[in-house]
Design a protein around this nucleic acid. Structure first.
Lengths: 218, 218
DNA sequence: ACAAAAGTGTTCGCAATACACCCATGG
DNA sequence: CCATGGGTGTATTGCGAACACTTTTGT
């Protein structure tokens, strides 16, 4: 009883004020030359959680990223060579930590590239749907999720944090209210450090207190 | 390229003041004679959403229930005859509407029976895990979900509604605050009808205004 | 001096919480 | 008349929302 299935890895980051998704250009049929979410077949004896780590690495060069299950898609016609079920995962990464590492290790993907989530072409298979599901989940869980801090460098400014909230929610927020709320939550640590290399007033940097954050949601 | 997988249907209801899950007794190996969440193989040319309707019906006799995807489980050792991926779905049903219909149509399940969610035996495969995931999801989404009303009869008392919240959250709530909040939400319609057949003061019945509810979450 | 973004307080209304007693009904 | 659950109000506190100007820095 053979059972083939794939995993796909929706990898998101935040850069230049917008959410971006990592796409790979396929070098293999079907959908050769199309952009797709990184993904491939799970080996017969391989745990799915291992497979998704291996495959995200092979497709994009990124290691040790935390992937969470998003959905299973199994449309009879989603794959031209016969029904192939896929389990989609989602990961959030810090742009600064990964920007120099993004490069496929396999040859079934030709290149990997970041696309703004609002600037994504028509993708292979049902991958546009996977992206849609991922963004929806991000938005739904935002108020009790660590997601914003997985997208930012360790030290960040409040404006960066606000931009993330705004990109995920798709609406703009009031600066003063936003800062008051973040302050009240009590898990942001104000540092005695400031932004560098900007041609205007440098903003203060902050860190998350992971202990306090975890306690709040325990 | 053959691709076998199953779907499992976590079906929950509310009765006698507690959440209950519908389990089936297997009449087929592996796990013959074990209790399990209703489920079976998806046909080769069958859409997964169709399969889950068909299979929930065959296993339990219940038709036209709304199933939502919960998770995919694919442990290499979850099935003794080789790795078989399963996609778990969840449905909520009204006890009054289904109590006389629960009966397997197939012969690979011997019987179907309601179990209190805190009184569930060790189940076949990884089905205890599926139950755990379902209850977690129910709890997480409770504040913006229609779930409580899918579990109750069309006309219900505020005490019943409160009991559902309490079962899902696993904590008791203050009666006055609960009623004030439900009133404020604005989608409950007070009826001029009362409970019957109780040996104490009969409680007023309520209905949900689905239009108003839908508007709030649009 | 100008451009660009940082940073900062108050008011108002509503929602969440804590808390205890009387009422209606059936047996 | 008793047992059982039904039903009700107030005070406090904290959060969400609306709203605009001054400060700092680099060029």
């Amino acid at each position: 009883m053979l059972s083939f299935f794939t995993v796909d890895c929706l990898i998101l980051t935040f850069h230049e004020g917008q959410l971006k998704v990592l796409l790979t250009e396929r070098n293999e049929y079907p959908y050769k030359d199309w952009w797709a979410i990184p993904g491939y077949f799970v080996d017969k004896e391989e745990e799915m959680e291992e497979a998704v780590k291996r495959i995200s690495y092979e497709n994009t060069g990124l290691k040790d990223i935390y992937l969470e299950q998003l959905a299973a898609l199994a449309g009879v016609k989603r794959h031209p060579e016969g029904r192939i079920l896929t389990v989609a995962y989602m990961a959030l990464v810090r742009y600064e930590e990964v920007k120099n590492k993004v490069k496929p290790i396999t040859n079934y993907m030709r290149q990997a590239k970041w696309f703004g989530v609002n600037d994504v072409p028509e993708l292979a298979f049902d991958h546009n749907e996977i992206l849609r599901l991922g963004l929806k989940k991000l938005k739904t869980n935002l108020s009790f999720s660590f997601a914003p801090f997985e997208l930012l460098p360790e030290k960040f400014t409040l404006t960066q944090l606000q931009q993330i909230y705004e990109s995920i929610l798709g609406e703009s927020l009031d600066k003063r209210n936003f800062r008051k709320k973040m302050g009240n939550l009590g898990y942001l640590k104000e540092l005695d450090e400031y932004q560098t290399g900007v041609s205007y007033r440098a903003a203060r940097l902050y860190k998350v207190d992971k202990r306090k954050f975890a306690k709040l949601f325990a």
